[in-house]
């Protein structure tokens, strides 16, 4: 295990930024720390880098407790959110900064820097100052500055956050390719679920300083452990219900009964996640006894790839329903019929 975080807590004044969080990361992994603002994801990254010390718990790198080890002595390298490029140094000197601190001979430094700049196609920019670069170029300089020391662990704080949408996807793929090529472990902080799902081997979801779930992207999306994860990733609907004697989960607020693939004992209260894209919307039809509901179409939002519809159910709850763009959407205010397969019902732990 390259990195082990054991029950770390960190308090800033009255706020508990991290609350007994544990996480293990293997060498060569790409892990995304996903969470909203105030979830503690950036604090966790700064704790691993050594800029903050945990109030409780331990950070172990290659089995060694990092307590009291300053950032300069840790084998990790950080890519800062606003890149933190040295404005008074050229691109070359920025990238060379870490190598020079190692006391590497001048010729070796030059060779390593050139090689690193070539890796991201910035050889021609070596003489420029950071303010003469575009946002995407700056991001790549920051990345290369961290990678040139060949650190086993690279920490990235919202590395794509400052880029415009068009650049973000391509740069993300570049990031992924670099991680594969170098074999380094990447830990990336992000608030963008699409980014986390697309790039990471595993996604760790943080909420209020706790680790809610850590799983590969597909598992996280298809088997969210909690209501929070289900809602945070893909905006799933959550239906609350109680198991009936008939083997169906009766959801009063939604006004429907669900057939589960593995139903628990009768009387059990259970929350179920239901993805908007798994629900089929029809204008009329006969209401099946299970995995279906009727309601009134309240809102339609065009999203390019489809329509996001809000349907008010008979029981009072509203469901988000995604309709592919090639389907016709009935006008607002019309009664509609919703249906979904039993496999779409995902039982939640909490």
């Amino acid at each position: 295990m390259l990195l082990a975080i054991e029950g770390v807590s960190k308090r800033f004044g009255a706020t508990l930024a991290l609350d007994g969080l544990s996480l293990a990361v293997a060498g060569g992994e790409f892990v995304a720390l996903l969470g909203g603002s105030g979830s503690g994801k950036s604090t966790l990254l700064r704790l691993i880098a050594g800029f903050e010390a945990p109030d409780a718990g331990r950070v172990l790198l290659r089995g060694q407790d990092q307590a009291g080890v300053p950032p300069q002595a840790r084998p990790s390298a950080m890519v800062f959110q606003n890149y933190a490029l040295f404005p008074h140094l050229s691109v070359f000197d920025n990238v060379a900064y870490g190598l020079r601190r190692e006391g590497l001979p001048q010729l070796d430094v030059a060779a390593r820097v050139q090689q690193a700049l070539a890796l991201v196609g910035l050889e021609a920019m070596a003489g420029r100052r950071p303010h003469q670069l575009s946002g995407g170029q700056r991001q790549r300089v920051a990345l290369v500055r961290a990678l040139v020391k060949r650190p086993p662990l690279v920490l990235l704080d919202e590395p794509l956050g400052a880029l415009d949408a068009a650049l973000r996807e391509a740069t993300g793929q570049e990031l992924r390719a670099l991680q594969r090529a170098t074999g380094a472990t990447f830990i990336m902080v992000t608030h963008d679920q699409a980014e986390a799902l697309a790039l990471a081997d595993r996604v760790a979801v943080l909420e209020a300083g706790r680790l809610v779930q850590c799983a590969p992207p597909r598992e996280l999306y298809e088997r969210p452990a909690t209501r929070f994860v289900a809602g945070f990733l893909g905006g799933a609907n959550v239906l609350d219900g109680v198991m009936g004697a008939d083997g169906l989960l009766h959801c009063a607020a939604a006004g429907c009964a669900l057939r589960l693939e593995a139903p628990p004992a009768p009387g059990t209260a259970l929350a179920v996640a239901l993805r908007p894209e798994r629900i089929a919307l029809a204008a009329e039809g006969e209401l099946p006894a299970e995995n279906a509901a009727t309601g009134v179409l309240r809102g339609v939002v065009y999203q390019g790839a489809g329509w996001l519809c809000t349907v008010a159910l008979a029981g009072g709850q509203s469901l988000r329903v995604q309709v592919p763009a090639d389907r016709a959407v009935p006008p607002e205010g019309v009664p509609v019929l919703l249906q979904w397969p039993a496999a779409a019902n995902i039982p939640l732990a909490g």
């Binding site: 800029f51 990790s76 800062f80 606003n82 933190a84 040295f86 404005p87 900064y97």
Partner: peptide, 27 residues
């Protein structure tokens, strides 16, 4: 002065004095 620059320098292996000499002082 952006404190992040000093943190970045420390993260790249610069001692406190080197951070001052190569980042704080020139800036």
């Amino acid at each position: 002065l952006d404190r992040g620059l000093e943190e970045a320098a420390a993260d790249l292996g610069a001692s406190a004095f080197t951070v001052f000499r190569t980042i704080t002082l020139p800036l």
